[in-house]
Structure formats: structure tokens, C-alpha cells
């Protein structure tokens, strides 16, 4: 079965071949290939288990999903909203089937158990890291730079599959947005974005920029394009 090849990343990385596959489609044949995320082995073939962009990096084959809901994984940074306060922590809604839990110990300073809403009240936003996923639920932590309560500003949602592009390689895109809008920007793997600045114009511009990036999944050299967009819209 031949698969249609499309140029997505251009010629800068010729060793990476990418093409769109549907579930059940044979990506490559051969015992030497290794099936990674979104693929499985069927006899001698590597078959797509998901709809998305198949990527051949050396002998490793994986499928990057282009659409669909956020599925949490350990180590993901997510933006969530406090939905309940319990005896020993906060219940956080992170747009997934089960709620996440943030233990009281994650608070940066001592908190009186009777006044837990002094730190995080119901409805407050937070940026946390997924510490572990068990059958009972998801555990969050504030262990990392920039993690904690998100105060002020506003939040909005984009497609979780576009978040890697919003962040860019080694954070190039998100830093570009921060520098050009003078905003504090946080992006969660679950698609929630948060912007904060004293200047409303800057916040709206940051939101516009993020939404533009998520609407253009197949543009080459997007960082340069966004740079010139910021130049034009100073």
C-alpha cells in the first residue's frame, strides 16, 4: 500500500520522512523497524494505530496525532481550575475524564487547613505538573520553574495537538511571543493558555498570535513568519 508523501518540514531534515496515515494502514515493512507511539507491529509490517502524521526517524516509526482530545501523561504541564477543596488538598479540573489532585504540601508556604482558599480558592487557575497517573486519579505538583497559581490575566483554550508548535523548538515560539507582547504566557499540554500583563492590548495580541499559530498546522518556518507578523503589527 503506497502512502502519499507530503512535505511538511521542508528539506532541512531530509532523514525524517513524514506522511499522513489512517488507522490500519501499513507504514513500512521490514523486521528492522521499531514501532513507537501510535503504531504497532503486525507480522513484518509496522501499522498505524492512530490517524496522524507518520514519522520515520531512522528505524523508529511513530505517529503524531493531529486531532483529538488531550490524554494526560506523566510529566505534562497542565493548566487547571480548582473545582473543590478537600481536607488535604485541592481537586483540579484539567479537561480529562478524572480530576487531578494537588496535595496541600505543594503550597509554597504554610497553610492553615481551615483557610485553604487563602492560597487557591474554587475557580482559581493553576499551572502544575502531572506527577503520576494511577487508577485512583492524577496527582499534580508545583515542582518546577514557573509552576504555581496563575493570578490575573485571562485564559483560553486551543487544540492540545497544536501546543508543541505554540511552544516551539526549545521554547523559541513562546519566548518570541513573550518578548514581543511583554506578556507572561503559560501554555498547558491540555490546550489551556494563560496570558498576563498590565497592558490589555499586549494580552490580546498574545492571544491573537497563539490562535494564529494553532490555525496553521502545516506552515514551514512558522517562527520567522510570526516574527515578521509582530514587526508588521507593532
Amino acid at each position: 500500500m503506497a502512502v502519499k508523501k507530503i512535505s511538511v518540514q521542508g528539506s532541512e531534515e531530509p532523514q525524517k520522512k513524514r506522511y499522513i496515515v489512517v488507522p490500519g494502514e501499513v507504514i513500512v515493512s521490514g523486521e528492522d523497524y521499531l514501532p513507537s507511539d501510535g503504531t504497532r507491529r503486525q507480522g513484518a509490517d509496522i501499522v498505524a494505530a492512530k490517524y496522524g502524521l507518520a514519522e520515520e526517524a531512522g528505524m523508529v516509526i511513530r505517529v503524531i496525532p493531529l486531532t483529538g482530545a488531550f490524554v494526560p501523561r506523566r510529566g505534562n504541564q497542565v493548566i487547571g481550575r480548582v473545582s473543590n477543596i478537600t481536607m488535604n488538598g485541592w481537586v483540579i479540573d484539567i479537561d480529562w475524564a478524572s480530576n487531578a489532585f494537588l496535595p496541600i504540601d505543594e503550597s509554597p508556604h504554610f497553610i492553615n487547613k481551615n483557610e485553604m482558599d487563602q492560597f487557591l480558592a474554587i475557580g482559581d487557575l493553576m499551572l502544575g505538573k502531572i506527577e503520576g497517573i494511577t487508577a485512583r486519579g492524577i496527582d499534580l505538583s508545583f515542582d518546577g520553574p514557573g509552576l504555581g497559581k496563575l493570578e490575573g490575566g485571562f485564559s483560553f483554550k486551543v487544540s492540545p495537538n497544536r501546543v508543541p508548535r505554540v511552544i516551539g523548538r526549545e521554547g523559541s515560539m513562546i519566548n518570541l511571543i513573550k518578548d514581543n507582547t511583554k506578556c507572561d504566557v503559560a501554555v498547558g499540554q491540555n490546550g489551556w493558555c494563560w496570558v498576563y500583563s498590565e497592558d490589555m492590548e499586549g494580552m490580546l495580541k498574545a492571544r491573537k498570535a497563539i490562535e494564529m499559530i494553532t490555525e496553521k498546522p502545516f506552515v514551514e518556518g512558522l517562527t520567522e513568519k510570526m516574527e515578521s507578523w509582530f514587526q508588521e503589527n507593532k
Partner: peptide
């Protein structure tokens, strides 16, 4: 398939 769910075919 469009929802990105794991499927056999």
C-alpha cells in the same frame, strides 16, 4: 479516527 483514538482499522 479523526478523534485520534487508537484503532485497529
Amino acid at each position: 479516527a479523526h478523534a485520534g483514538l487508537p484503532m485497529k482499522n
